[in-house]
Design a binder for these strands. Structure first.
Lengths: 222, 222
DNA sequence: TTTGTATTTACGGGTTTCCGTAAGGAAATG
DNA sequence: CATTTCCTTACGGAAACCCGTAAATACAAA
């Protein structure tokens, strides 16, 4: 079984249960951080001390408080981890249940398992830890109904998300175009962006931009 | 200390920690339900058996799944409780940190304490339980920064919410006006509605309608 | 009733979205 | 090299918005 595990979870009420599972599994070294920044620090430190972690269990959303942070979400943390220790096994334990977001965790961030916080999630978490140790891939807790084959939301790509994000921040077409130009995201003509928004509106059956953003918010896309 | 406590919380990862607190406090009878409906049932049963609960600790949001439910949220549950056993002490333990929603819990649903799930919430929960037992009123976990006096969001009324809801559904000004006319909501001239939207934009510092709805979604207003 | 005030509605022009059409350019095919 | 196809960009008119001002209405006080 795993020898050294890091838990990144801000809610104490949840971390207690997660740590209990790890103790039940006789993991010798269990560390727990409440902020993403601390998590990355620990992992880097373990690397230089030649005693790296072999599993990380992370939440996705972290409450923001008085403390200034660089990494503000589980996604940020995992991305940072992938830069320093890509071989580290990663399990995400979160309330999120939108298929699009979970798929991108597997595809873009290369996580090993996703467990959705729910009515029977502690069992699921234990199974995911054991499965990850055995080398199983793309483990998904059983209460998640979607499959990796369904095409829903798969064709929404990061380009679309960028547009939606800027729209949600009050940008007008022209601003989005110049923003894209300065970030060298392409295509960046107002017309192309307009067309892409139009596709999104058709896809989500939205009457107008306002409607579109409301739907995007509901889907957790922005 | 309390003798009989009911915990309504769907996430097993959290209920474990809550129950642990109650056990530490030597509560003799602790019951736990994962659905609001079950919670109400238990409370009614305890009443007819002449062994009523003296405290309920409830979450606000419950995941929906295959099971059909009558009560779908903590608010629903507490409202139902107030109908059958208004004297029952009520503590809400939730991730919600929007001041106007919490205020309405105290003012409309008459709860005794609110504890926000956070990095040190188990301690806060314990203090809230003890405080409630001693008869303290309107207990608020200390990480919540707002006070009951600040006017923020208090002046947003149901009329504004109606407008925001319709905007989020893709209605244009004209549609909103006629919708209001047929529901005899007044004022219902396009111009008046426009002006009201403008006030909201100033209030929330939104650049345009799209931005406004994005913000409203973030605040949980729609 | 009259006056004053505040709220609601109407109006207008400038901006942005909305939506169709078409021009320009790059890559692929033959 | 010519043609096709796809993608990006440009353009233009109608609809909806944004925002200020002015007229109409409602309502309370004198």
């Amino acid at each position: 079984m795993f020898k050294k595990v890091l838990v990144a979870e801000d809610l104490d009420s949840i971390s207690i249960a997660v740590i209990q599972v790890l103790e039940d599994l006789k993991i010798p070294t269990i560390h727990h951080v409440k902020y993403c920044d601390d998590g990355l620090l620990r992992i880097k430190k373990a690397l230089v001390e030649n005693a790296p972690y072999d599993l990380v269990i992370s939440d996705l959303s972290f409450k923001s408080d008085h403390r200034k942070t660089v990494l503000s979400s589980g996604e940020d943390l995992i991305e940072a981890i992938n830069a320093v220790q890509p071989s580290l096994k990663k399990i995400v334990f979160s309330i999120e249940d939108k298929s699009y977001r979970i798929k991108s965790l597997f595809n873009d961030l290369n996580i090993n398992a996703y467990v959705s916080k729910g009515r029977n999630s502690i069992n699921e978490l234990r199974k995911a830890i054991e499965g990850t140790f055995k080398g199983e891939e793309k483990i998904l807790s059983s209460d998640l109904s979607f499959s990796f084959n369904d095409k829903t939301l798969i064709e929404i790509e990061s380009y679309d998300i960028s547009i939606l994000k800027l729209l949600a921040q009050g940008y007008i077409l022209e601003n989005i175009a110049s923003e894209f130009k300065s970030s060298s995201i392409t295509p960046n003509g107002t017309s192309s962006i307009e067309k892409r928004i139009n596709k999104l509106k058709i896809y989500f059956k939205a009457n107008n931009n306002v409607h579109l953003i409301a739907i995007a918010k509901d889907f957790g896309l922005v």
